[in-house]
């Protein structure tokens, strides 16, 4: 019984389909992360303002977060696209997405007024009082979808298409 289950599972995880779907997900998430990371890297002060709007992190550590987080996004985005340490980078990405989802949930539950999540631009943090708005569920859905995609890559993308695959082939040759 156990062997039959194992055989089916191994058959499933060895499907070539995973590599292609994994690549598609990696490209989408990787490009999204790089696109999101660049303006934050260029203007860390503004990103710090965005983080402060969430009212979660103590102000002393906001700068630290504003320095590290964008580079983590950038490096994960690049490693995902090129398929280097694919599983590890998707794991880090999932960790980040979990943090973003938690932050957005807190903002939604507490009805913290913001004009944007600060994910792609930092304008959200700079706004007039009368234009303030609460964060919508669409952002949460976006992050959850990316988390599912990241989870899929972590589990089923063996890195056949990418640097990992090339290194493995070179090692086995």
């Amino acid at each position: 019984m156990m062997t039959a289950w194992k055989t089916h599972a191994e058959k499933f995880i060895n499907l070539n389909f995973h590599s292609y779907l994994g690549l598609l997900i990696r490209l989408i998430i990787g490009v999204t992360f790089i696109y999101a990371a660049w303006p934050k890297i260029v203007n860390p002060e503004n990103f710090a303002w965005s983080i402060s709007m969430y009212e979660i992190v103590p102000y002393k550590y906001i700068y630290l977060m504003a320095i590290v987080l964008p580079w983590l996004e950038m490096i994960c985005g690049l490693t995902l696209i090129f398929g280097f340490w694919t599983r590890a980078s998707s794991l880090v990405m999932c960790g980040m997405l979990l943090i973003f989802i938690a932050a957005l949930s807190i903002v939604i539950i507490n009805e913290v007024e913001m004009t944007g999540c600060g994910c792609f631009t930092q304008q959200g943090a700079q706004a007039l009082e009368e234009h303030k708005d609460t964060i919508g569920y669409s952002l949460l859905v976006r992050d959850i979808l990316m988390l599912i995609g990241g989870g899929y890559v972590w589990l089923f993308d063996h890195g056949r298409i990418g640097v990992d695959g090339l290194l493995r082939r070179y090692k086995n040759a």
Binding site: V68, W71, L72, I75, T79, W85, A88, S90, L91
Partner: peptide, 22 residues
């Protein structure tokens, strides 16, 4: 085994990112 290694490598990515960021 690969999933287990990925956790260790994830720390590697994190520390490398810290280095680059600082």
């Amino acid at each position: 085994k690969e999933l287990g290694y990925s956790v260790l490598k994830a720390f590697g990515i994190f520390f490398f990112s810290l280095l680059v960021a600082f």
